[in-house]
Amino acid sequence: MTRPIPVPNEWTRPFWDAARRGVLQLQRCQACKHFQHPPYATCVRCMATDLAFEPVSGKGAIYAYTIMYHSGDKRFAAAIPYASIIVELDDAPGALLAANLLEAPYTEAKVGRRVEVVFQPLNDEFTLPQFRLARDGR
């Protein structure tokens, strides 16, 4: 599958640089310690501008999901049906990450299922944080 390749900007580059090293980092407000995703210019909780990227554990739960059956984009046609999921991380409540559920049939996607991050190289430059069902079930 040829996925669209992310184009980082000044706010988002640290996220992708860390992913390439196999580390999940999210933007965190240094004033109120709130994690937010996608990255933004300011802290959306306290309006502070002192923001930095910090590693998170990569453990969380499926917040929501959809199973894609529509092959409007031919690049994804071979993967249909596939699960597009939204993950809420234990370390960063409210910061919702889009991903696909890997290493499991799409029928395993359920709200609340425990998942853990895995890294899927896209090309030499970019690696996608993805998720699979948590190995220990927690």
Partner: peptide, 11 residues
């Protein structure tokens, strides 16, 4: 832009 966090996953 914002799609860098969604489009690679088929959204």
């Amino acid at each position: 832009g914002a799609s860098q966090f969604t489009a690679p996953y088929g959204f």
